[in-house]
Design a protein around this nucleic acid. Structure first.
Length: 637
RNA sequence: GCUCGCAUAGCUCAGGUGGUAGAGCGCAUCAUUGGUAAUGAUGAGGUCCCCAGUUCGACUCUGGGUGUGAGCACCA
């Protein structure tokens, strides 16, 4: 007798053991058809799995997240199958599930072309339609090695050899194609219906840049065609929002060959930059930071002392002058310690918070640069807090609150918190680490929010908290961070006099909220698709005349709004008002004010927003109030 | 840095078996003074990314470089 408990709590009894598939069948033929896998006592298994004792069992279909992942995984196998059908000399390696899809890495004598992808996709479709049964089998490691050796699959042999042979290895076979896999997999290739191959790219074997490069094919797979279509649509939207495109369209910035990875900010882009900077400057003032500024060029001796040149010399720009070698500063912290070191500090001075809009240059690898998101010249909203160990938690707590406020003001509601703790290679005493990690953890717990733990991911000099925000497309963007540093203050000779007149080394907290202005503005551009909230808009309102007759009136309105501190301009060109409206709407200007004879006579303007809403006719005072309100509450219209 | 692709007018992009190129938008000039997402006409714009090589001749083919895109690796 066998009792199976289903997810709804109902129980079913069976005389003898049965497979997941048979269980699904006993519930209903529709479910049996839809069954992709089973979950037996919390463990995912194939539909062919034999249930031999009392258990809680769920039937997994494509509607479950796990079901979708199994489909994606099986789709990776389907692709490998298709590739080997078409290109027998291609060797298989690994093919995991990733966000929205899967990839599979092949070793092949040449790279795959877009035409190859089409052919592979076609072959996959054929195999899917054929409805091949997918069978699981077990093999000992030696058997498996022998089999793949015979097949000439060198990479697979390496993988298998690196797995400990305990209860045998599982293999999945469909048609002639067999692959090592933990599974589970769909019972039949016909379950894989909605997929598309997206791109080919090189990827290192085992992810190691010293190893050879393989051919990676990326694909996406979904439950049905509709979901696939939705996903492809989302990708199109992401492309529309690409900050590089919008930056060009809205004339915010450009890059050119002579200065790779360095931004030429145009007037409107620079305005956004200045507004975010002024925002941060106010925030610094309100939160006990003192703004400083430190040199761009600093002699290598300082970078030797700080340890940066030993680790990052290849990524630093150098300048030689008067036969001395300088680095263009790649970071601000050593300079901040120099400021701290001027004058003997007392425990009464702590915590000492120094902030800098620190312009840094790093020689980033050419292939890593990406628009504003990763550049070689950037400015951090950098800050360093010199404090005692006891002060860490309080400082971190305050900082977390600050980060939430800032991200909210900029329109980001969802924030992910991560704590990275001690790595194997590290400096500092374990006691210090214990204390610092506990302080960070407590600060996180005090927020009452969820946070993730990343054990071993901390920097060699101390643990850290990282802040990732979610943009409107649901993409995570890591921006802010606060890091405890046990190392640098000591290396650079920072000290303070304690209550008992002994000298101590302060702890240094590195912290940033935007990360870099460049990247943060890139994120803002994509988040808002260029339609910045009024408080960030380079131009908040454009005043349009209908004929030359209203030109003076328009200028008068612009002057009066400008005098109040609003960013307003006029467009008095000899064009039809419809043309001007189109142009400035495309430029995402929040408000368009139209003045014709009627408005001149009544001393009003006709107001329209960039989404096409007609806000009616109002006088200037009313419009000012409207703007003011938007600005004060960081409105996102 | 690695793999693969791309580089043509200010922008977005066409184009040609090797004989120096074209559209739309933008820009300029003129006409037009028009009420809420594109008024019309005319015109000016090009070292076809750079450097070598092959060739009677290279924007086109070959090699090298630079930049850039997707991904990998890296990211103090």
């Amino acid at each position: 007798m066998l009792t199976i408990t289903l997810p709804d709590g109902s129980k079913r009894e069976f005389d003898q053991q049965l497979t997941v598939y048979e269980l699904a069948e006993s519930i209903g033929p529709g479910l049996a058809k839809a069954a992709i896998a089973g979950k037996v006592d919390g463990e995912l298994v194939d539909t062919s799995f034999e249930i031999s004792q009392d258990a809680e069992v769920a039937i997994i279909t494509s509607r479950d997240q796990e079901g979708l992942e199994i489909i994606r995984h099986s789709c990776a196998h389907l692709m490998a199958n298709a590739v080997q059908n078409l290109f027998p000399s291609a060797q298989v390696t690994i093919g995991p599930v990733i966000e929205n899809g899967f990839f599979y890495d092949f070793a092949f004598e040449r790279s795959f072309t877009p035409e190859d992808l089409e052919a592979i996709e076609k072959e996959m479709l054929r195999l899917s339609k054929e409805g091949l049964t997918v069978n699981r089998s077990l093999m000992s490691r030696d058997e498996a090695v022998a089999m793949f050796k015979e097949m000439g699959e060198e990479y697979k042999v390496q993988i298998i050899e690196s797995i400990p042979d305990e209860q045998g290895l599982s293999f999945y076979k469909q048609g002639d194609f067999i692959d090592l896999c933990r599974g589970p997999h769909v019972p039949n290739t016909s379950h894989i219906k909605a997929f598309k191959l997206m791109s080919v790219a090189g990827a290192y074997w085992r992810g190691d840049s010293n190893d050879e490069m393989l051919q990676r094919i990326y694909g996406t797979a979904w439950t049905d065609k509709k979901e696939l279509k939705q996903y492809l649509h989302l990708l199109e939207e992401a492309e529309r929002r690409d900050h590089r495109k919008i930056g060009k369209k809205l004339n915010l910035f450009h890059f050119q060959e002579e200065a790779p990875g360095m931004v030429f900010w145009h007037p409107h882009g620079w305005r956004i930059y200045q507004i975010t900077k002024q925002y941060m400057q106010t925030l610094f003032e309100e939160n006990g930071y003192q703004e400083i500024n430190t040199p761009q060029l600093v002699d290598y001796s300082l970078w030797d002392k700080s340890g940066h040149s030993a680790k990052f010399a290849e990524h630093m720009f150098s300048v030689e002058s008067d036969s001395r070698m300088y680095a263009i500063k790649p970071m601000n912290c050593p300079c901040h310690v120099q400021v701290f070191n001027q004058g003997l500090k007392s425990y009464r001075d702590l915590p000492l918070r120094l902030a800098e809009f620190g312009s840094c240059h790093r020689y980033e690898p050419s292939g890593s640069m990406h628009g504003l998101m990763r550049v070689r010249s950037f400015t951090q909203d950098d800050g360093h807090i010199f404090c005692t160990e006891d002060q860490i938690q309080g400082e971190v707590s305050e900082f977390i609150d600050l980060v939430y406020k800032v991200y909210k003001d900029f329109g980001f509601e969802e924030i992910i918190l991560r704590l990275s703790t001690r790595p194997e290679q590290r400096v500092g005493e374990d006691e210090e680490w214990d204390q610092a990690e506990a302080a960070l953890q407590e600060a996180l717990d005090n927020t009452g929010r969820d946070w993730q733990l990343l054990p071993g991911e901390g920097a060699f000099y101390g643990p850290k908290v990282e802040f990732a925000l979610k943009d409107c497309m649901g993409r995570e963007q890591q921006c802010g961070t606060i890091q405890v540093d046990f190392s640098m203050p000591g290396r650079l000779g920072a000290q303070f006099v304690a209550e008992d007149n002994t000298r101590h080394t302060p702890v240094m907290l590195h912290r940033a909220i935007f990360g870099s202005f460049e990247r943060f503005i890139g994120i803002l551009i994509e988040h808002y698709e260029g339609a910045f909230p009024v408080w960030l808009s380079p131009i908040q309102a454009m005043v349009l005349n209908i004929t030359d007759k209203q030109a003076d009136y328009c200028e008068k309105i612009v002057d009066s709004l400008k005098n109040k501190g609003f960013r307003v301009e006029s467009d008095l060109r000899n064009e039809k008002v419809g043309f001007k409206i189109r142009e400035h709407t495309v430029q995402r200007i929040p408000y368009l004010l139209v003045a014709g004879d009627k408005e001149v006579d009544a001393n009003t303007v006709s107001v329209r927003d960039r989404t096409g809403n007609d806000l009616g006719v109002m006088d200037i005072a009313q419009f000012e109030a409207l703007l003011q309100q938007d600005i004060e509450n960081y409105s996102r219209t």
